[in-house]
């Protein structure tokens, strides 16, 4: 029995290594761009992952489905699982492998040198250790500054709540910019920040939103996938406004979501493809800013009456000042 088992295992190993060798072909230039996307949640999470997915699909639509092939692996929060998916994609000859999360940075640093013809990308991040890695980097503080200005002008209770995930890179940038924005239009207002300690615990995010509202907040904002849980609570409360991040979430709660800071990943993906066609496979830091249009404010048309012309003018002026550099958002 044991012998048979051993033979079977050996055969299995042999077969899988043959399959792997057969699969590992170099990228062929047949005019088709093969994009692989590895994401921590799902393509319809109404947050970070969906923003990138929408961007890639928009590029595919624009360039033609016969020109761009897209493949996606979802729910790869765990870096080990993500690593094997990334390797697989690279060895199958994908041209552009996007690992959509800051946690994939060191993985790409390990994998990228073995596939010099493949372009890898990750974000949020700025360091590119190898010439075939792009690091995209949303300047969330720019958009959140504008959101903060809106919150400062709209609050009646002078209490604004942030439902945060984990106090780390992205959330800190967003929150600091937001608080500066609030102070710019309403120095009296208090911004209360509370973290769930998780990215995906929707129930906990909802509970924090409830506590924030009970403690007087009438404007709420927050980042990460979990924000959906908080939006649901804000909607239920009736008289609370939510300011979104990552992508336009207004379809979730059309009477509650006033505006979104949205990431235009279409431009990011296009820039990477363009750069590739010019022979530059990576090695660049790609900031998403208001200036380059990769960061946008998307207003919910249904709540247009909530913002007066004066408010809009103020936001516009600040936006222009951020773009021309006369307004610096210091989050250090």
């Amino acid at each position: 029995m044991r012998k048979i088992l051993t033979i079977m295992i050996v055969l299995l190993i042999l077969m899988s290594s043959v399959a792997f060798a057969a699969g590992s072909k170099e990228a062929v230039d047949d005019g088709v761009i093969k994009i692989a996307l590895v994401i921590p949640s799902t393509i319809d999470d109404m947050a970070w992952s969906q923003a990138m997915y929408n961007g890639i699909i928009a590029v595919q639509k624009e360039m033609g489905e016969d020109k761009v092939k897209v493949d996606i692996s979802e729910m790869l929060w765990n870096a080990v699982d993500a690593g094997s998916a990334i390797m697989q994609y690279a060895s199958e000859g994908y041209n552009l492998v996007i690992a959509h999360g800051a946690q994939y940075q060191s993985l790409l640093n390990d994998i990228a040198p073995d596939f010099p013809e493949t372009t890898f990308a990750y974000g949020t991040g700025y360091s590119t250790d190898h010439p075939n890695i792009f690091a995209y980097d949303p300047f969330a503080q720019e958009g959140s500054y504008l959101l903060g200005m809106i919150a400062g002008m709209k609050t009646k209770s002078n209490i604004i709540g942030i439902v945060g995930p984990v106090e780390s890179g992205d959330a800190i940038k967003f929150n600091k910019g937001f608080i500066l924005g609030v102070k710019a239009t309403n120095p009296e207002a208090v911004v209360r920040v509370a973290y769930t300690g998780s990215f995906g615990d929707l129930v906990a995010a909802g509970e924090i939103a409830k506590s924030q509202i009970a403690a007087g907040a009438d404007i709420l904002t927050g980042t990460a996938q979990q924000s959906v849980g908080a939006i649901r609570v804000a909607e239920g409360a009736g008289n609370v406004l939510w300011l979104s991040s990552d992508l336009d979430q207004s379809s979730l709660a059309p009477n509650t979501i006033l505006v979104a800071q949205a990431y235009n990943f279409t431009k990011v993906v296009k820039e990477m493809i363009d750069s590739r066609s010019k022979g530059v496979l990576g090695g660049k830091h790609l900031p998403l800013t208001l200036e380059n249009g990769m960061l946008q404010l998307v207003f919910n048309p249904q709540l247009d009456s909530e913002l007066t012309a004066e408010m809009k003018a103020k936001i516009d002026t600040a936006k222009k000042q951020i773009i021309d550099g006369s307004l610096k958002i210091d989050i250090e």
């Binding site: 709540g161 106090e167 209360r192 509370a194 300690g197 509970e207 506590s211 924030q212 403690a215």
Partner: peptide, 20 residues
């Protein structure tokens, strides 16, 4: 749990990682 969330909400100066 509720206590740790409220000390965050009320901005009481306490590291949230420990509060959690």
């Amino acid at each position: 749990h509720s206590f740790q969330r409220l000390i965050q909400v009320y901005g009481i100066n306490f590291p949230y990682e420990i509060a959690v």
